[in-house]
Amino acid sequence: MAQDTPKPATAKPRSTKPRTAKAAASAAPTAGVEEARSRFTAAVEEAKAGAAALTGEAKARAATLTDTAKTRAAAYAGDARAKGEDWAGEARSKAAELAVEGKAKAGEALVGLSRVVEENAPVIDEKLGQKYGDYARNASRSLQTTAEKLNAKSVEELGEDAREFVRQNPGKSLGIAVVAGYLLSRLFRR
């Protein structure tokens, strides 16, 4: 029988791993970490380049859209301005026509009122006396003269006369406007 004899102790191979944390920190990075860093850096640089390209493309598109919008806005503004000028011209001509018609009707109304007063002057003479009949005849002549002046002047001349009257008599103008407004409101209320 053979006895078991102890085997001589063999030495264990030393590990290449550092034994402490300080030693691990000071050790050089492994090849895998270095490769990961280089790939990450490349990805970041690629993302920056892509973002710069997208920014440039966005600025170019924005400039194109802005130019298109300005061009269309200018075209629409020109069209709108032309239509507005057309409508304003139509409104001016229509207002001028209405003013001429109004002037003619006012002249006719003054002539008609003058005739009515003249025809009623003898009745006033009989009922109130000769003095009041003369007042009626003077009023009739005054209405007739005013109608003739109104018919002789153009609408523009009448407008200028009205402006001049307002400049010279602002108090009277205000009073006339108040009375006319009151009468118109009473007329349209009914």
Rank of each mutant, 00 (worst) to 15 (best):
F40Q: 15
M1T: 02
I176W: 11
L113Y: 07
A47V: 11
G175D: 14
V33M: 11
P170E: 02
A63W: 02
L113Q: 05
A62I: 13
Q144T: 12
A47S: 00
L187A: 04
G84F: 04
T16M: 08
R14K: 15
K127Y: 13
A60E: 07
E46C: 09
S15W: 03
A73N: 07
V111H: 05
A51M: 07
P8R: 09
T10P: 01
A104I: 06
E34Y: 06
T71F: 03
A109E: 12
L65E: 04
G78P: 02
T55H: 14
A139E: 12
A27D: 13
T55E: 14
A77N: 02
P18E: 01
V100L: 12
A96N: 02
R61S: 06
A139S: 11
A58T: 10
Q168I: 02
K17M: 13
Q144E: 12
L65H: 07
E126V: 11
E126N: 09
A24E: 14
P13I: 13
G175N: 12
L158H: 00
V155F: 01
N169D: 08
K131R: 15
V117L: 14
A162Y: 03
G181M: 04
P13M: 14
E57V: 12
A180Y: 09
A109Y: 10
E35G: 02
A47I: 11
I124F: 07
A96K: 08
A77D: 04
E46S: 10
K83S: 05
R115I: 06
A2Q: 06
N138T: 10
A52V: 06
A136M: 12
V166S: 10
L150T: 00
T20S: 00
E157N: 03
G32F: 09
L158A: 00
T146Q: 11
T41V: 13
A177L: 07
L128K: 13
S154F: 03
P29Q: 01
A36E: 01
G175C: 13
W87V: 09
A177E: 06
G129S: 02
P8N: 06
N169T: 03
K83H: 05
P170V: 04
A104S: 15
K105W: 10
G50E: 14
T145L: 05
T10I: 12
V116S: 13
E148R: 12
E126S: 14
A42K: 05
A162L: 08
E97R: 10
T145E: 13
L110H: 00
V100F: 07
S185K: 08
A2P: 02
E85Q: 06
E118M: 07
G50A: 10
E119L: 12
